[in-house]
């Protein structure tokens, strides 16, 4: 609905103002995404990349379109999708990534809940400071935060030595903390924790404290007050946090790349491998589409669960 405030021929102004960002995002976001989807149906080129659809004569510079109504079968295929389902390693890798992202989300929730609750209950002045303290590390460079854990979990670090010292007391062989699944999960939790705290805090802040007083008057103990009052009311915030942690964690490639070992690869690492190392772009595109579909499905589930929680309020 255009409000008459700005006058200048409603529609013209609307077009003038929204066109520049619209065109930019169509060209540099929507179009590349469509090209990627199309690439999933093409064949890989002889030297990686994609099999060209247009041929340029090296002498005359004349271009011929190779793909026609008669030849399209030589240029388009469903095979890349078949490959994804044929070999179980790809499905297994997806499941493993879901497991990593799920575990990360769960740990983030457990760490973030008490903290968010505390922030929401604290004084207005301290509250802003406490929130800022959660946000600040998130805005420092992502790679630096991962690198920090390479130092902490490195074999010669104080932390590794302490852990192995304790293990030694129990007669357990020293373990390598870095380049393991453990390191990947720690890294994922560390990087995504603020995404869980913020929506949880935003939700908990709005709770009506008198409900808890009422529950207490009616004889509910601390645990019952949490489980029967606070927790159900906080579900929309929980679901928002789950979506905000799970989705980026699922597509992560730098953390397994730097902190993980050979068997802690995630979807993102496989996608990166297909594009940059083995240069099989069609299959890389198939994997990207599968990741997008997973993300979409999860976002829908989280939105649905979140709205269901809201209706109960």
């Amino acid at each position: 609905m255009s409000k008459p405030v700005y006058g200048i021929g409603g529609r013209f102004a609307k077009w003038l103002i929204s066109a520049p960002p619209l065109v930019y995002l169509l060209v540099f976001f929507a179009l590349p995404a469509l090209i990627m989807v199309f690439a999933a149906f093409r064949f890989p080129g002889d030297y990686g990349g994609l099999l060209p659809l247009v041929e340029t004569d090296p002498e005359t510079g004349k271009q011929t379109v190779l793909i026609t109504l008669d030849t399209w079968r030589d240029y388009l295929t469903f095979e890349n999708f078949g490959r994804f389902f044929e070999d179980s390693i790809y499905i297994e890798l997806f499941l493993k990534s879901f497991w990593y992202a799920g575990l990360t989300t769960l740990i983030c929730l457990i760490l973030a809940y008490p903290l968010s609750w505390l922030i929401a209950r604290s004084h207005k002045k301290t509250r802003d400071l406490l929130v800022l303290l959660v946000i600040l590390p998130f805005w420092s460079n992502f790679l630096i935060r991962v690198y920090a854990w390479m130092i902490i979990l490195g074999p010669q670090s104080y932390f590794s030595q302490a852990v192995n010292g304790v293990l030694g007391v129990f007669g357990i062989e020293p373990v390598s903390l870095l380049f393991s699944e453990f390191a990947v999960i720690v890294g994922l939790v560390y990087v995504h924790l603020p995404f869980m705290v913020l929506p949880l805090y935003a939700n908990l802040e709005k709770h009506d404290m008198s409900l808890l007083d009422a529950a207490q008057d009616l004889g509910a103990n601390a645990w019952q007050r949490f489980w029967r009052v606070t927790w159900p009311l906080s579900l929309p915030g929980v679901w928002a946090g789950v979506a905000l942690v799970f989705i980026p964690a699922l597509g992560m490639f730098a953390i397994p790349d730097l902190l993980g070992g050979t068997n802690s690869m995630m979807i993102g690492n496989l996608i990166k491998q297909q594009y940059l190392d083995s240069r099989d772009w069609p299959f890389g595109s198939v994997l990207s589409i599968m990741l997008t579909l997973s993300v979409l499905l999860l976002a829908l589930v989280a939105a649905w669960a979140g709205s269901r929680g809201k209706k109960k309020d």
């Binding site: 995002l25 590349p32 090209i35 597509g251 993102g268 772009w281 990207s288 990741l291 997008t292």
Partner: peptide
């Protein structure tokens, strides 16, 4: 672009 994993945008821009 804010909501999806960054890698998706990265690879599609690479092809583009």
């Amino acid at each position: 672009p804010i909501a999806i994993p960054e890698i998706l945008m990265g690879v599609s821009l690479l092809i583009f």
